[in-house]
């Protein structure tokens, strides 16, 4: 990642700092003191970063093509999982999640995928639910 991303980062954090200071306007003094110092420091260090990056603009390292597609797919899968876990219930949702992740990762053997998901989710369920009494979500339909 070259210097461009560093510039974006610095500018983004400066904006965060300004917004943060703005949010502190209504807060009484003692609790606002620490965040206030921190947002000023954030702006300060971001500016230092910005200046140092702009100075060394030439030594941008070579760009690598990054395949963001699977990253987005996994993040999306996790978000969807979290949205539906209470509806489907822990067992089914997690089972599907594991299959999905293994498939996105590009593993070709479908049967092994399913077996691994089934076994691993069952073991994890046994440890957390049965041994540790963690109330994993039951789901609306199955009641488990």
């Amino acid at each position: 990642m070259g210097w461009k991303s560093n510039i974006i980062l610095a500018i983004f954090l400066i904006c965060v700092g300004i917004v943060g200071l703005f949010l502190l306007k209504d807060m009484p003094e003692p609790p606002a003191m620490f965040p206030e110092i921190l947002f000023f420091l954030l702006i300060f260090f971001s500016t230092v970063l910005l200046i140092s990056v702009l100075k060394n603009s030439k030594d941008g390292s070579e760009k690598k093509e990054i395949n963001y597609y699977p990253v987005l797919k996994i993040t999306g899968g996790l978000v969807l999982y979290t949205l539906i876990i209470k509806i489907l219930g822990y067992l089914l949702a997690t089972f599907l999640l594991v299959i999905y992740i293994i498939l996105v990762m590009g593993y070709p053997k479908k049967l092994i995928t399913v077996v691994v998901s089934l076994v691993s989710v069952s073991i994890i369920f046994a440890i957390f639910k049965l041994l540790l009494n963690v109330p994993l979500p039951a789901g609306l339909f199955l009641g488990l």
Partner: peptide, 10 residues
């Protein structure tokens, strides 16, 4: 990776 994700969410 799949198994790790299952452990992580749980």
């Amino acid at each position: 990776s799949g198994v790790i994700i299952a452990l992580c969410v749980t």
